[in-house]
Design a binder for these strands. Structure first.
Lengths: 342, 342
DNA sequence: CTTTATTTGAGGTACGTACCTCAAATCTGT
DNA sequence: ACAGATTTGAGGTACGTACCTCAAATAAAG
């Protein structure tokens, strides 16, 4: 038996096609008990709306926007590449993907950009922006105006939960990611020593959470290792050079280096050749990949940009269709990359 | 501007809708130069066939079959669960998924099952069966009869390639998976010692390849570790008990245990409490997951069953639609699982 | 230049759903 | 029981494509 159609549903509910249509599309002017009869019939015959046909009929298309920061590293470039790729692949399915980049330092501009989005032109937004009251507010108003939204990679209220209320977050649990790095650092480090932690900035919530997860594991299970206070590069080569040289000089017993940020290129180039620390970094980029291949980096903790992008898109589509998402499919894995499983 | 339709295409090519239809659907009775005019117009205006509408019009549905072995462990159970889940999720998209289990020991029965498939009733098959001439033959004939096929998890001609000719394989590179296990074993093992390798059987190609990859890394980079000859459990508890006890007795310096098969439950229960080897196993099951949580297992090398299933389905669909697949999206990752990134 | 074969065009129906209009049926309050 | 409002039904058109038929146009053969 084929899937029941609206016709079958009308017959089963003992109403006309027009009424079925009214119920299915939340139109007014249907008595409550008639609605109930139809919804019961839906259950009874297992009616499932044919979304393809529906989208065809209303000539609907999904227009999604990825709102990304302007300043970015290779990881951001990867993301954009994956977004474009997904956009290509989805033209078949009436889905258009656009990317907009904004200054990440200015919450007001982000909020303004979100506020200026026209529901007539955009159906959903994936927002990669640091959490702030303005942004949260703007996001809430987006939903009111019928634009779907997901927090993309940053901006989550707290780690460890896929959703906070109706908020959806696409990305990994950064605390767990840090713990993963910590565990590997512990297992890879045979002898006692100090561990240097380098970040671009500790203002970013994700870096902070990773550091916390990292410390928790090291201090609990690897007492022979000491984690030094985080160094912040602020994306400044000179500064990076200075603080790293100073650290390696004052701590000759550095046996590990943990790079919190995705931009591992700069710190790694500054590591003295004499020291051979166990290096663990985040995110896969052409540079970190090469460093992993060459043996300079021991392991990478990553999240697959392709998965991130596709997950965000699936969630936005589900939101637009008022469908539930399969949470199990949307959990982004914390991946461990070594030379052998690149 | 919206996506061009067949009407736009007809206008652009200077032909009628009927002719466009003839060209698009490979019907006979169109002059070569007319075909060329249409195909050129397709390029020129960037026409993309609306697959939803096409499938609606021909009321097409995709019916796929997963052919799995009968005898199986928890990993197989996971696979089946994911297949059912995917089937649920895809009812929206006119895709039906069925599972059939056959005796894995008998290539003839597998070939016979494949041969008996009716193109009227099945559009594609994902085959999880050991490689054999009969099966390969039957698979070739499937394609001739218009049924799409992918090798699922086993049966690949050789590792390291996604495709061999037009053959598609869904699964990980087992040699690399073994190498990954080897690298972790090496890094996790501080002091010299012997490593025990346990498999269900070494007749299975995947176990063999994993072992080779494992050995290569250990012998090249970790000379202080010695890998003992593989032990085969043959799924026999008594035998497992016997050979493991014997091994731990005759080699008191066993510092590592590598479990090749997905069924790690039996060997792990037989490891003497006195020994505290670094244990690395394959596949995530309720049992291995618990062992990872408790700290008995140091790391798991896995492939995500959900990804495997969805990849197979995507490939089968693409085959049916005569589309190309995005290779980058279909590469199954070799995942490393530790307690922190479960 | 016919005759025949091949190629093309015009038009229709269908898929399952959305959305519209108008008339008919049913329910309100009095 | 009636006017008025509300609810329902019947029917149509549309989305983009597939697939069918029949006639008209064109090409190849005699």
């Amino acid at each position: 038996m084929l899937r029941p159609t609206t016709k079958d549903l009308a017959r089963a509910a003992g109403v006309s096609l027009a009424t079925v249509d009214r119920v299915l599309n939340d139109r007014t002017g249907v008595r409550d008990d008639t609605v109930k009869r139809v919804t019961q019939a839906i259950e009874a015959i297992g009616f499932i709306r044919n979304l393809s046909a529906a989208n065809l009929a209303r000539s609907r298309s999904y227009r999604f926007l990825f709102l990304l920061p302007r300043s970015g590293d290779q990881f951001l470039a990867q993301l954009i590449a994956r977004i474009d790729e997904a956009g290509q692949a989805l033209t078949t399915e009436a889905t258009q993907i656009a990317v907009a980049q904004i200054e990440d330092e200015d919450p007001h501009q982000i909020a303004a950009t979100l506020g200026a989005l026209d529901p007539q032109q955009v159906d959903g937004v994936a927002i990669m922006a640091p959490e702030s009251p303005q942004v949260r507010d703007a996001k809430a108003r987006l939903t009111e105006r019928g634009i779907a939204a997901v927090a993309f990679l940053s901006g989550q209220i707290s780690s460890g939960h896929l959703t906070t209320g109706s908020e959806i977050f696409v990305g990994i649990d950064n605390d767990a990611a840090g713990a993963t790095a910590g565990r590997l650092m512990g297992r890879f480090s045979g002898k006692p020593g100090k561990i240097l932690v380098v970040a671009e900035t500790l203002l970013a919530r994700d870096s902070l959470e990773r550091r916390l997860g990292f410390d928790a594991v090291i201090s609990r299970d690897y007492p022979h290792l000491t984690v030094l206070p985080s160094l912040e590069t602020h994306s400044d080569p000179d500064r990076t050079q200075r603080i790293l040289t100073a650290s390696f000089t004052s701590h000759p017993d550095i046996t590990g280096l943990y790079v919190l940020a995705s931009e591992a290129r700069m710190p790694l180039q500054r590591v003295p050749l004499s020291a051979h620390p166990v290096i663990i970094a985040h995110e896969r980029t052409p540079y970190t990949e090469a460093a992993l291949q060459s043996g300079q980096i021991a392991a990478l903790i990553t999240q697959d940009p392709g998965h991130l992008v596709r997950s965000a898109i699936r969630i936005l589509r589900a939101r637009c269709d008022r469908r539930e998402v399969l949470a199990s499919q949307e959990k982004i894995r914390i991946e461990i990359l070594i030379r052998e499983n690149l």
